[in-house]
Design a protein around this nucleic acid. Structure first.
Lengths: 208, 208
DNA sequence: CAAATATACTGAACAGTGTTTAGTGAAAAC
DNA sequence: GTTTTCACTAAACACTGTTCAGTATATTTG
């Protein structure tokens, strides 16, 4: 009897329906204004039903957070097409900035909000999505070492953390409106100028 | 008749009483768990009273945000004692990291939360506190140029933004628990290692 | 096929949130 | 002494995440 298989399938469909509504509302009106009740209304079910499919709001956010990582990893992986390792690193940074600016809410979910991380904490699991994308960066940094762009005894993990820190800092300063202290509309230009300087800094600063 | 003077004084006292309670609860139990009702209870007044002294919660957060900047600026200004400009820059970074790790909630308020910034936006004012502390950094970077540590035609604003981005990125990755992806308890060591590398990067990467 | 069981779902409630408003009691002004 | 002003509050409004008893339907069992 395929009844339990069908039930399992129906369950997965419902989870998808909830996720679709959540993603939609989340991207449309931001996290702060998206409520369980709102999601419930969108799928025409009672708010309580959502709790039959997701433990709490954090788990729902965590699921969205995972989706967002798949999306970003897909974007970042495209840089494999760039032959030269250092050029590849530069392009990876560009893609990272592009993703952050085009998906500010998702970026928040992935790297700033603590709520989705609590789901991880209470299951005491490690943050695999973060680690996977960090490994993508580490790989390219490693290739830059191999190609002789960076000194051969460079600590790849430390260097990658340093590069990521810079990238993350730059985009969050912008996304969290801290760059409007300059009082003009040249914020994106400032980011570009900074990124260009940073590239020169690592080119000169990490070489043999 | 000194009655209006007394009233003004009493008003300021009340504002201080509210701020003290807000600061206390905020630092004790974090932003998320601090409510207007909680603050009201702490000062033994009705929640509605708070709205006679502060427009809304954002304005209260903004006032705390200003306090936090005064505190940080005091810490950062201490580096003036360091004679050598480049050593001064290094020490400024250390102080910045120290402040962030010792005051995570305040750091959030100052550089991550958008709520206090909305008070600025609806008054359409500029973010002066941010600009002032950025100028502190710019000054030291400028002194590094003068002392010959950095190339003479360096764009000081861009270089400062780049340095701040790195510092901000590093501490927020840590504060927002994204460094537990490494799955060990060497998070602070990793930060130190990264900061050391970054210093060498700017020493070599920005020099003449 | 009928009775018993399992399952999916919901209405209503709980305990909280920020904020507004009508109304009260005391102090200040006349 | 009367009127006005002003600080203050109780209560309500419109929300929030979450839980739980109860129901209606689908499935399994006798």
């Amino acid at each position: 009897m395929g009844v339990i298989e069908r039930k399992e399938r129906e369950r997965e469909e419902m989870r998808q329906r909830i996720m679709n509504a959540a993603r939609h509302l989340f991207l449309e009106q931001g996290f702060e204004k998206t409520s369980i009740r709102g999601i419930a209304e969108a799928i025409e079910y009672s708010p309580a039903t959502i709790y039959l499919y997701y433990k709490d709001k954090n788990e729902l956010l965590f699921a969205l957070h995972e989706e967002a990582f798949l999306k970003m990893m897909a974007e970042l992986s495209k840089v494999a097409a760039v032959k030269d390792p250092f050029e590849r690193l530069i392009e990876m940074g560009n893609q990272y900035i592009k993703y952050a600016l085009e998906n500010p809410e998702l970026y928040d979910l992935m790297f700033i909000m603590t709520a989705p991380m609590e789901t991880l904490a209470c299951r005491d699991e490690i943050w695999e999505d973060g680690m996977k994308s960090f490994c993508l960066l580490q790989a390219v940094v490693g290739q830059c070492v191999e190609a002789g762009y960076f000194e051969h005894d460079l600590d790849i993990e430390t260097a990658s953390l340093t590069i990521w820190s810079y990238m993350h800092g730059l985009v969050t300063i912008y996304l969290k409106n801290r760059m409007n202290m300059f009082g003009d509309d040249k914020q994106v230009e400032r980011m570009s100028a900074s990124y260009t300087l940073f590239i020169e800094m690592i080119r000169k600063g990490l070489k043999e």
